[in-house]
C-alpha cells in the first residue's frame, strides 16, 4: 500500500521536475542553482503529505508557486549580499549591443534578452510562452489580477521584440 503511494508520487514528480527545473533556471539563471532549487522544492513537496498531493492539477500549481517563491527568496538574499550597482528597472539594452559580438546563435540572443529582464518579467515569459499556462493560472500563481497579467505580458512582448530588432539592426 505504502509502496504504491510512493510510486505515484515518483511518477508525478518525473513530469513536474522538469517544469520546476526550467522555471528555477529561468529565475536563477545558473544551472547548478536551479538543480539545487529543484531538489529542495521536491523535498518540500514530499514533506507536504499525501492528502495535498492527491490532486495532481492543484499540486502542479502549488509546486510552481512554491518554486517561484523559493527562487525569488534566493534572489532576494543574494541581492542583500551584493550591493546593487544599478536600479533593477534599468534597461541595459546598450550592454547588449556591446555584448552582441559574443552572441553567435540567434536563439541564444533571444535567451539572453529574456534572461536580462527583471525576474518578475522573466517568470511571466516562462509561465506563458514556455510552460503555456492559461492567464487564469498565471494570475493565481503570481497573485495578480488576470488583466494585469495580460498588460504586463503585452508590455514584455513588445519590449523583447524591440530589443531584438535593435540588436539585428545594429549588426547590419
Amino acid at each position: 500500500m505504502q509502496l504504491t503511494v510512493d510510486n505515484s508520487f515518483i511518477n508525478q514528480i518525473q513530469d513536474l521536475r522538469d517544469k520546476i527545473y526550467r522555471i528555477a533556471k529561468r529565475l536563477l539563471i545558473s544551472t547548478e542553482e536551479a538543480e539545487d532549487a529543484t531538489q529542495d522544492v521536491i523535498v518540500k513537496l514530499w514533506q507536504m503529505g499525501e492528502s495535498k498531493r492527491s490532486d495532481f492539477k492543484s499540486m502542479e500549481a502549488y509546486s510552481v508557486t512554491m518554486t517561484k517563491n523559493y527562487c525569488l527568496d534566493r534572489l532576494k538574499s543574494k541581492q542583500a549580499q551584493n550591493v546593487a550597482l544599478e536600479d533593477s528597472n534599468f534597461e541595459n539594452a546598450t550592454d547588449f549591443l556591446q555584448n552582441k559580438i559574443e552572441l553567435r546563435d540567434e536563439l541564444k540572443w533571444v535567451e539572453q534578452l529574456i534572461d536580462q529582464l527583471p525576474e518578475k518579467e522573466r517568470i511571466l515569459i516562462q509561465l506563458r510562452e514556455i510552460e503555456q499556462y492559461e492567464f487564469e493560472e498565471i494570475a493565481s500563481i503570481l497573485n495578480l489580477p488576470e488583466g494585469t497579467v495580460r498588460v504586463y505580458l503585452s508590455r514584455i512582448r513588445k519590449k523583447l521584440r524591440k530589443q531584438f530588432l535593435e540588436i539585428q539592426n545594429y549588426g547590419n
Partner: peptide, 19 residues
C-alpha cells in the same frame, strides 16, 4: 523573422529537462 526567433526559442526551451 524576429517572431520566428522568439517562437522557436520558446518551443526549444519547453523541451529542456532536469539534467
Amino acid at each position: 523573422k524576429s517572431y520566428q526567433q522568439f517562437f522557436s526559442f520558446y518551443q526549444e526551451a519547453k523541451n529542456e529537462s532536469y539534467p
